[in-house]
């Protein structure tokens, strides 16, 4: 589904990603772990199509398309979704309007009928219930005045409504207390599907107790320095990121 080859990229002339190789297949859940500044968020934002990054070498194929050549909205319409580390507040635009605009853009692209108002509302309500979210958030402006936890849940709600083929969750666990973390994890687990891939970008192993990945990658200084099964995350938690560096040097 996603194939990243030797990706080098940076911003303002500073190289941040220094040769990423990563392959993700349908049905898989991958975790990308790494210390601050390792390039995790840069990779996530670059894949979602944020302007401003310079790709100096390498390629990214997504569903047999050149992902880097597509504008952000085309990537979303092709089924790619990024849950933001810092969700943006959009004053004056209700959650309901935002979700409708997003879903109908994507459905239109996929040749599906736009959902009518009643069906949409029902869909949004169902998904909110699964995530333990208050329906009163629907008429409220997107993320405005939301707590950190509400914002993160709202990202997962958008994912649940938009049903992407490839979901990248950037630090979705940060700022969540343990109860909220469990609810969010249940929501994500509920979306595991043979036709869908999920990439969890996280600093801590905590999230991976609840969403058990098929593959764990360790990102350090813009490169994937180690990949392994779920146990790798636990080893990392025990030994710290320095351990990977030492092992690599050895």
């Amino acid at each position: 589904m996603l194939s990243i080859k030797n990706l080098h990229a940076g911003i303002h002339g500073k190289e941040i990603l220094r040769g990423i190789d990563l392959g993700v297949r349908s049905g898989e859940v991958h975790a990308i772990m790494g210390p601050n500044g390792s390039g995790k968020s840069t990779l996530a934002q670059l894949l979602a199509g944020r302007d401003g990054y310079e790709v100096t070498a390498g390629s990214v194929r997504y569903l047999d398309q050149d992902l880097l050549a597509m504008p952000a909205e085309a990537r979303a319409r092709a089924g790619l979704f990024l849950a933001f580390q810092y969700p943006v507040e959009i004053p004056g635009v209700s959650n309901a309007l935002f979700l409708k605009a997003a879903l109908n853009s994507i459905r239109k692209q996929q040749g599906l009928d736009e959902l009518d108002a009643m069906d949409l509302l029902q869909l949004m309500r169902d998904k909110m219930k699964l995530l333990g979210m208050d329906e009163l958030l629907l008429p409220r402006a997107v993320n405005e005045g939301f707590s950190g936890g509400e914002k993160k849940r709202n990202e997962v709600l958008q994912m649940a409504v938009l049903e992407p083929k490839l979901a990248i969750l950037d630090e979705t666990d940060s700022g969540l207390d343990i109860d909220a973390l469990k609810i969010v994890a249940d929501g994500v687990n509920g979306m595991r599907h043979p036709q869908r891939a999920i990439v969890l970008v996280t600093h801590y192993q905590r999230l991976l107790e609840f969403i058990v990945p098929d593959v764990v990658h360790v990102l350090s200084q813009g490169r994937i320095v180690r990949s392994g099964a779920a146990e790798l995350a636990r080893e990392l938690e025990q030994h710290g990121y320095g351990w990977v560096e030492e092992q690599k040097a050895a």
Partner: peptide, 18 residues
């Protein structure tokens, strides 16, 4: 904000209008 909307599939022109 523009990127947030576009990352949800909304084209740039509609995102600006929203």
């Amino acid at each position: 904000s523009l990127f947030y909307l576009r990352s949800r599939g909304v084209d740039a022109e509609s995102a600006r209008s929203l």
